[in-house]
Simulated assay, not measured.
Amino acid sequence: MNLMISGHHLELTPAIREYVKAKLDRVLRHFDHVIDIAVILGVEKPAEKDKRQRAEVNVRLRGNVIHVESFAQDLYAAIDSLIDKLDRQVLRYKTKLQDYQHDAIKRMPGEASVA
């Protein structure tokens, strides 16, 4: 799994990087078929008095891409909200995969077994 963490109008400290990696471990515990994760952290300034922190992630899976974004006043709160949303999305994708893969039919009904 490749992990890329980048900042937009924001300096990434080692503490922020470790926080994101620790939080992503929770998602990887539930589903380990992840190819690539790209996390973008940034600051949006729609108005000078209202600074919002933004966190977004793109998770590439086999045959699918999950995109989640979150906004908050605090960067750590935005990351926490992002990870909660991502965890729900990954679990939903995992249950879809498991529901799609049906058990194989071993014998057709009414067919006699040959010994």
Rank of each mutant, 00 (worst) to 15 (best):
Asn2Glu: 14
Ile5Pro: 03
Leu10Gly: 12
Thr13Tyr: 03
Ala15Gly: 08
Ile16Met: 15
Arg17Asp: 03
Val20Glu: 01
Val20Pro: 01
Lys21Thr: 13
Leu24Cys: 12
Leu28Cys: 06
Arg29Lys: 15
His30Cys: 03
Phe31Glu: 04
Val34Tyr: 01
Ile35Gly: 05
Ile37Val: 12
Ile40Asp: 09
Val43His: 08
Val43Asp: 12
Lys49Ile: 03
Asp50Trp: 13
Arg52Ser: 12
Arg52Gly: 05
Val57Gln: 04
Val57Gly: 00
Val57Glu: 02
Asn58Gln: 05
Asn58Asp: 13
Asn58His: 13
Leu61Pro: 04
Arg62Lys: 10
Gly63Tyr: 03
Asn64Tyr: 04
Val68Cys: 14
Ser70Gln: 15
Phe71Glu: 11
Phe71Asp: 11
Asp74Lys: 15
Ala77Phe: 04
Ala78Thr: 01
Ser81His: 09
Ile83Met: 13
Leu86Gly: 00
Asp87Glu: 10
Asp87Gly: 10
Arg88Val: 03
Arg88Thr: 03
Gln89Arg: 14
Gln89Asn: 08
Tyr93Cys: 04
Thr95Tyr: 09
Lys96Trp: 03
Leu97Pro: 00
Asp99Lys: 14
Asp99Trp: 00
Tyr100Asn: 12
Asp103Pro: 12
Arg107Leu: 15
Pro109Asp: 15
Gly110Met: 12
Gly110Leu: 14
Glu111Phe: 09
Ser113Gln: 09
